[in-house]
Amino acid sequence: RPMNAFMVWARIHRPALAKANPAANNAEISVQLGLEWNKLSEEQKKPYYDEAQKIKE
């Protein structure tokens, strides 16, 4: 299954978030990633939607 825009973004940002929160488990990191993603504007998300579309094609 191809990655969606959030997954493209999260793949880039997960390592830094995990390093900054070494005690957090994957579920907690995923929740935090979701919160951070939701704070982004549509303009900030656009490159990730574009990349996800390329992956689908």
Rank of each mutant, 00 (worst) to 15 (best):
R14I: 04
M7P: 02
K46Q: 12
E43F: 09
K46V: 05
A20M: 10
W37N: 00
N38V: 06
D50R: 10
E28T: 08
K45F: 01
A5F: 02
A20N: 08
I12E: 09
V8D: 02
R14H: 05
K54V: 07
F6Y: 09
W9P: 00
A27T: 10
A23R: 13
E43W: 07
Y49K: 06
N26H: 14
M3D: 08
A5Y: 01
I55M: 12
A23S: 12
A10Q: 05
G34R: 15
L35E: 07
P22Y: 03
W37I: 00
M7R: 09
K46N: 04
R1C: 15
E36A: 13
K45Q: 06
N25G: 10
I55K: 05
R11S: 11
L33S: 00
N38G: 10
S30D: 14
Q32P: 00
A20K: 10
W37Q: 00
N26Y: 15
R1H: 12
A52L: 08
D50I: 14
A52G: 03
N4I: 11
K45T: 02
Y49M: 08
P47I: 06
R14Y: 14
I29F: 02
R1Y: 13
N38Q: 10
S41E: 03
V31H: 13
A18H: 10
W37F: 03
Y49D: 03
M7A: 08
P15W: 10
Q53W: 06
K39H: 04
I29C: 02
A52C: 05
K19I: 08
E43P: 06
N4T: 15
L35I: 14
V8N: 03
R14G: 12
L17W: 08
Y49G: 03
A24S: 08
A18G: 04
D50E: 12
A10C: 12
Y48I: 01
K56P: 06
E43V: 09
K46C: 04
P2F: 14
S30A: 13
N4S: 15
A52I: 07
G34E: 15
W9Y: 13
G34C: 15
K45D: 00
R11N: 10
E42G: 05
L35P: 00
A23P: 02
P15A: 14
R11V: 11
K56D: 08
Y49R: 11
S41R: 04
A24I: 06
K45N: 01
E51Y: 13
P47A: 06
R14F: 13
K19E: 08
A16L: 15
V8L: 15
P47V: 06
F6N: 00
E28P: 02
S30F: 14
I12Q: 08
N21D: 04
F6E: 02
R1M: 13
A20W: 05
I55E: 06
Q32V: 10
N4E: 09
N4Y: 08
A5P: 04
E28H: 05
Y48F: 10
R1G: 11
E36M: 15
E28S: 07
R14T: 04
I12M: 10
V31Q: 11
Q32L: 15
M7D: 13
Y48R: 00
R14M: 07
N4D: 12
A24T: 04
N26F: 15
D50K: 12
H13T: 09
L35M: 10
I29Y: 02
E51T: 09
R11W: 11
V8T: 03
R14L: 08
E43L: 10
A52E: 04
D50Q: 10
R1E: 12
R1P: 13
S30N: 14
Q53L: 11
N38R: 14
E43K: 09
A52F: 11
G34D: 11
E36P: 00
E42K: 14
E51C: 14
L33G: 00
K19S: 08
L33H: 00
K39T: 05
I12Y: 10
D50A: 12
N25M: 04
P2V: 14
Y48P: 00
A27D: 12
N21R: 07
R1V: 12
A5N: 00
E51D: 04
H13W: 12
L33W: 01
P15V: 12
E57R: 07
P15R: 11
N25P: 06
E51Q: 11
K54C: 06
M7S: 06
L40Y: 02
G34A: 15
A27Q: 11
N26W: 15
G34W: 15
N25A: 05
A24K: 11
E42Y: 15
R11L: 14
M3A: 09
A5S: 02
N26D: 14
A5Q: 01
F6K: 01
K56W: 15
A10N: 02
L17D: 02
Y49P: 00
P2A: 12
F6A: 00
K54P: 04
L35C: 05
D50F: 10
V31C: 09
K39V: 05
A5I: 02
K54T: 08
A16K: 14
N4H: 08
Y48H: 01
A18I: 15
K54F: 07
A20Y: 04
L40M: 11
Q53E: 12
D50H: 10
H13D: 00
P47L: 04
A18P: 01
M3S: 08
E42V: 12
S41V: 03
K54Y: 07
Y49W: 07
R11T: 11
A10L: 08
R1D: 11
E51F: 13
Q44N: 05
I55P: 04
P15M: 12
G34M: 15
P15K: 12
W9N: 00
E43S: 10
R11F: 12
K56N: 15
E28D: 07
A20V: 06
A52Q: 03
P2L: 14
A5C: 02
I12F: 06
K56E: 11
N26S: 12
K19Y: 06
K39R: 10
I29T: 02
L35S: 06
V31F: 14
E57P: 08
A16H: 10
N25R: 05
Q53V: 09
L33N: 00
V31A: 13
N38Y: 08
A24P: 02
K56R: 13
K46W: 05
L17S: 02
E36R: 09
Q44M: 07
V8F: 12
